[in-house]
Design a binder for these strands. Structure first.
Lengths: 257, 257
DNA sequence: TAGATTGTTAATCGATTAACAATC
DNA sequence: TAGATTGTTAATCGATTAACAATC
């Protein structure tokens, strides 16, 4: 149905739709579809079925079709989706038709790696500036960019039209950096520091915490181990939950609190 | 269903519960609570209310209480939660009472940074081995560990009781590495390569894709821009969605496909 | 036309949240 | 006892999925 608005009773016929208001879960999957589509395009496919794309993206095909239907997408029944067209549509809604300028704050271990990460450049972004608060790092050249002092943020953010800030500082500095980014008008932040940031409404923060990812995997490991060897082992409700009757996994080495 | 479970009608009184089967959303938040709790403990709190912990972890307090109730948790009405006890309980369910050995494959840009990431060590993990397929990198010393050739994986995985594999290779190598990890018995994988891995049932994979995080932020930037300046601009259904009538954002530079 | 595959429906499932009785 | 705060209920919301009519 609906030519130019998912949903039917759009008041004005002929009115071009604003950006569709996609479910968050859908937004989070579109980049994965995009990656899979680029891969398909490179291997010469110009058409793909929902089944084919879904399996390339690691999701269920009903979910894929539902997601694409929110875009008001244009597949062809009996045929599938035009790869190039779908790439264009997804890049459009994700706002990737303009390359966005990214400022990276904190050029320690991780920041260094991020500054050199080729995937940003190939997937719609341009690292436009590097910052650090440590004067001894300022001036350093990383991947063709000079590290600037965080004090210069305002000036450079304006000059480079920074759209997204990436925080790769220690947790102790992250809130201050976030405040500074917000102060110069940045409304999207990717935070690698292991802490919660508080920001005004209208500012989006996404967080990547590497240790948390491992801890989630650890839970499942623990779970799998407790299932294979079912000698009722438990948290000893209320008491200390230390070793006691653990079992079967192998490595056993208490972790300091 | 389920014989010995937190939640009321457990058959055997005195029977210790196996690991509770937590909702995935809860599992994903527990590490955040844990981090906040350690922070509170360091600043001398020995008790915290659900309201206080929730705000430190950036969630709603009803959600926090619900999450903790799945652990069969032991708060005290009118008082709050005992910080040290809660830390113990969460570390127990997450399987952090034993320090897990991690193998990191791929010591390029990102792998290098991960090998040096202190957060792993302080939060329950031990990077036990580094691997690469490039002979010219083998032998290199990173953070006190020698880079080994991926061929030696089997031998070392056994010797070090590797529990979790981290893939930081290019996408083109990631599936092969995953197969090799699975072959030596690893059942938890953290994948930084931008691709979908296929693994047998029983193996858990978590994926971190840095460009995807930025693309999600880009969507919201695009969305915010399309709302503030409402001159009906749209995807030109079916046609190319290139610049045309875009507007207002500033940076405008087409991105290559 | 027959076969294939989309877009949508509707049922189901899981997650969130406000509200409040239980209880310290 | 009065005040505070948990643990749980129940309502709501959003996401997933199988199934299938529409249609190429």
């Amino acid at each position: 149905m609906s030519q130019q608005r998912p949903g039917g009773q759009s008041g004005q016929p002929g009115a071009v739709p604003a950006l569709p208001d996609l479910p968050e879960a859908t937004v989070a999957r579109l980049p994965e579809y995009l990656r899979a589509l680029h891969h398909l395009a490179e291997s010469g496919h110009d058409t793909v079925s929902s089944e084919g794309l879904a399996s390339a993206a690691g999701v269920n095909s009903a979910k894929l079709r539902k997601d694409l239907s929110h875009l008001g997408s244009y597949g062809t029944r009996g045929v599938g989706y035009d790869v190039a067209l779908l790439i264009e549509q997804i890049e459009y809604v994700l706002g990737l038709t303009q390359r966005r300028a990214v400022a990276l704050v904190g050029v320690g271990n991780l920041g260094h790696a991020l500054a050199g990460y080729a995937g940003f450049a190939t997937r719609g972004f341009r690292i436009a500036a590097l910052f650090d608060a440590d004067p001894s790092r300022v001036g350093e050249l990383i991947n063709g960019l000079v590290v600037r002092h965080i004090e210069d943020l305002a000036e450079i953010a304006e000059a480079e039209s920074i759209a997204i800030g990436v925080i790769a500082t220690p947790a102790s500095a992250a809130q201050l950096v976030a405040d500074q980014l917000v102060a110069v008008g940045v409304t999207s932040i990717l935070n690698f520091a292991p802490c919660v940031l508080s920001v005004p409404e209208g500012v989006d923060v996404r967080k990547v915490d590497l240790a948390i990812e491992l801890q989630i995997l650890s839970f499942h490991e623990h779970r799998k181990a407790s299932l294979t060897s079912l000698p009722a082992t438990g948290p000893a409700a209320g008491l200390t939950a230390l070793p006691g009757g653990l079992s079967a996994t192998g490595t056993e080495e208490a972790v300091g609190t």
